[in-house]
Write a protein that binds this DNA or RNA. Structure first.
Length: 706
RNA sequence: GGGGGUGUAGUUCAGUUUGGUUAGAACGCUUGCCUGUCACGCAAGAGGUCGCGAGUUCGAGUCUCGUCACUCCCGCCA
């Protein structure tokens, strides 16, 4: 069968009337009227209606057509005709025409489908309605190749391709070159767990899959490429979310002899072009917000600016308050902040505020409670308003810019971090519940001036990674207070409260880099051991440089207006990092493990750097040579637990006895009337000749009860 | 690791609160009829370990406990 002359279903139109066409695709839907049969034929380009009728279709073909079923793969020849008046279908692009079939071949048949594929008349609607009924994602992933037949899903991947192409074209125009960096590499300084790959050639050594190409891209700057980018896979072994997969795609880029402004301009232009592919215009320039401002106003370092409802600082209003809860919190150096939910008194009834928000939702955010006040006229109305003086009430109204119908929500706590976090989540919760977030609105913002370090129990740690440039270099690595006052030259690009990417200007001066390591408590030798190859590169004239990485999955998902990056990933993993289609990850053959030297890792001392304790049950399983399935483990665990408890109980009762291997004293028993006879094979040694070890006339058995 | 939700026909879901006849609906599927449908129509039919396991009970889809799977949130993670 030749397909050279094949046409695309979805591209046919009135201009093609009377032409003879060759089509191939899948049976999207069929309607059998006995004599005449209508088929929607679908290929990548769209849908067109086929007509099988004895008037013009050969008898044999008509007969074959009755065996057609959904998703059969067929090819047809036919003539394009204008549809009779009144039979046009406005729901499909090709609704003005149809194909009179003159020949048809069934290329392959399909089983009954596990879920509907055809989007039928919904073709005309937007992506938001992919199918009329949602199908469980588990099933979709198991039959992903069928899921991906749906036009809506194809659009996601096609648009993703267009976005990738747009990125490559734009960066090429700006003299960035795409360089591939290793996937098998060593652990990089990002904070997440690594995926490890054992090396066969170097037994007991492991590669790490990159969490990002961070060090390599900086080395490319040292190498003098000046502008690099890569659309590359990154890996992090952390729990999954709807916007987090264990492997994900980053647009990673880095440039030399640039500053923050260069990155802002470049990325704004790039993002505008990318969003345009989804039909969205992002207004430029993007607003900026310092990390401090973002935290103060929204309690989050990725503020959602589609709506206001910013935090109002209210601590000073209550310095003289009689309200004992506030009073106590302020005595402990606490903070009081709130938000004004404009014109919400109808939706937020006293009952909702007190019983839902104050009692359940806000405590769920980690705060002890929530104070609420409804504004009626110029009065405050609340369950605790009587504790506040007239002056306090007036100041509250003024400070929160409150008017009739508003609802003021206040959270107080000794910890500023807790107030910010709880009030930030409350802000989002209320906005979502009251439908205050405009649909189809996209508000980007650059968040800058992050703290360089965060405090830890021992000292400080990098907020991003240790190669981020500080805003000043005259700091004292030993002065914790000084360190915590340092800001970094880093920036995150946030859209609608989701972090799409981030980056920084890097340190290119070895002395500064040493100071940062010193601040982190890394001795020169430790730094050498971890990043020696990279630090050495800084000794050879590194250029000033910086860059950024964009989470492509998130960007594409946002452009396509879908909440989950799994929708824009061809073959994603589910929540348990498992692929229902391929059943990965899977057990592997014993021989494979042996070849990789992974069989004798049971004992901690055989694996340098490993300090994990051996699992008791695995050990007992090994000792007793009795295998078990994973689902039997809980049972064995509880049995073992019981055994241990019993042993302890017995030992507690009978401490004077020495523990013995056997409870019953060992002795030989004979049937009544018979006496012990000694086998002649004992004398020759033949009886125990196959025993692994012999003691006297006995052979040893495995000490499975040790 | 912690918390919430869900699990009943191929699919999407009722039924579970308050245990009680043969577990239902829609779509899909199978067969038959139908020459203009496009969510075709009409008629008939098949299809269920009610996630799994224990328990309570005369009796469990329904109540209790455990367990598994999926999913959302927190932790974790740029």
């Amino acid at each position: 069968m030749q397909y050279n002359d094949r046409s695309n279903c979805g591209r046919l139109g009135s201009a093609d009337i009377d032409k003879t066409v060759h089509l191939a695709g899948w049976v999207d839907a069929l309607r059998d009227h006995g004599e005449v049969l209508f088929v929607h034929l679908r290929d990548k380009s769209g849908i067109v209606q086929l007509v099988f009728s004895p008037e013009f279709t050969p008898e044999e073909i008509c007969r074959q057509s009755t065996s057609l079923r959904s998703e059969y793969c067929i090819t047809v020849f036919g003539r394009i005709v204008k549809r009779a008046e009144g039979t046009e279908n406005p729901n499909i692009e090709t609704g003005d025409i149809e194909i009179i079939v003159t020949d048809m071949t069934i290329l392959s048949r399909s089983d009954n489908l596990p879920f509907p594929i055809s989007e039928k008349a919904m073709m005309g609607s937007t992506n938001e309605t992919i199918s009329r009924e949602p199908v469980s994602e588990d099933l979709r992933l198991q039959y992903r190749y069928l899921d991906l037949r749906r036009p809506g899903m194809q659009q996601f991947l096609i648009k993703r391709h267009k976005i990738n192409a747009c990125v490559r074209e734009f960066l090429d125009q700006n003299e960035f070159i795409e360089v591939e960096t290793p996937i098998l590499t060593r652990s990089t300084p990002e904070g997440a767990r690594d995926y490890l790959v054992p090396s066969r050639v170097n037994p007991k050594h492991f590669y790490a899959l990159p969490q990002s190409p961070q060090l390599f891209k900086q080395l490319l700057m040292v190498a003098g490429f000046e502008r690099y980018y890569q659309i590359t896979r990154c890996f992090r072994d952390e729990d999954l979310r709807s916007n987090r997969q264990p492997e994900f795609t980053q647009l990673d880029l880095e440039a030399s002899f640039i500053d923050e402004e260069f990155i802002f301009n470049l990325i704004e232009e790039l993002l505008c072009r990318m969003f345009e592919i989804g039909g969205t215009n992002l207004p430029r320039p993007f607003p900026h917000m310092t990390w401090q401002e973002a935290m103060d106003k929204t309690g989050s370092d990725r503020p959602d600016l589609r709506f206001e409802m910013y935090f109002v600082e209210a601590t000073d209003i209550f310095t003289q308050t009689r309200y004992s809860i506030f009073k106590q919190i302020l005595q402990r150096g606490g903070v009081i902040k709130g938000i004004n939910v404009k014109q919400a008194s109808e939706s937020l009834s006293k009952n909702v505020l007190q019983n839902e928000y104050a009692k359940q939702i806000v405590p769920g955010f980690g705060a002890k409670g929530m104070t609420w006040m409804r504004v009626t006229g110029d009065q405050l109305d609340s369950n605790i308003v009587q504790f506040f003086s007239k002056e306090e009430q007036q100041t509250i109204i003024k400070r929160f810019n409150a008017s009739d119908g508003d609802v003021i929500l206040i959270i107080a706590d000794p910890s500023l971090e807790l107030v910010n976090s709880a009030l930030g989540r409350l802000r989002l919760h209320v906005a979502d519940r009251l439908d205050m977030i405009p649909k189809d609105k996209f508000v980007p913002v650059w968040v800058t001036d992050f703290p360089l370090f965060e405090p830890t129990e021992e000292g400080v740690t990098s907020s991003h990674h240790p190669f981020t440039a500080p805003d000043r270099i005259d700091f004292d690595p030993a002065d914790q207070e000084d360190l915590l006052s340092l800001l970094s030259r880093s920036y995150d690009i946030v859209v609608n409260g989701e972090e799409l990417g981030g980056g920084s200007i890097r340190i290119h001066d070895p002395a500064t880099q040493q100071k940062v390591f010193a601040a982190l408590g890394l001795s020169p030798s430790e730094a050498e051991e971890k990043f020696g190859f990279f630090l050495r590169a800084l000794d050879f004239g590194p250029p000033p440089h910086g860059g950024l990485a964009l989470g492509m999955d998130r960007v594409v998902a946002m452009i396509m207006k879908t909440p989950s990056i799994r929708e824009v990933t061809a073959f994603p993993k589910n929540r348990s990092a498992f692929c229902p289609l391929t059943q990965a990850p899977s057990l592997v053959a014993h021989e494979q493990l042996a070849e990789l030297g992974l069989l004798d890792l049971g004992k901690a001392e055989s694996l340098p750097g490993s300090d994990q304790e051996q699992d008791t049950i695995d050990y007992l399983s090994w000792v007793s040579r009795i295998g078990f399935e994973d689902n039997e483990r809980p049972m064995i665990e509880s049995a073992l637990d019981d055994a241990v408890k019993m042993a302890q109980a017995v030992f507690g009762i009978a401490q004077e006895y020495e523990p013995a291997i056997s409870v019953v004293r060992g002795q030989n028993c004979f049937r009544k009337g018979s006496s012990a006879t000694r086998s002649s094979f004992v004398e020759t040694g033949a009886l125990l000749k196959n025993a692994p070890s012999v003691k006297g006339d006995y052979f040893r058995v495995a000490s499975i009860l040790e």
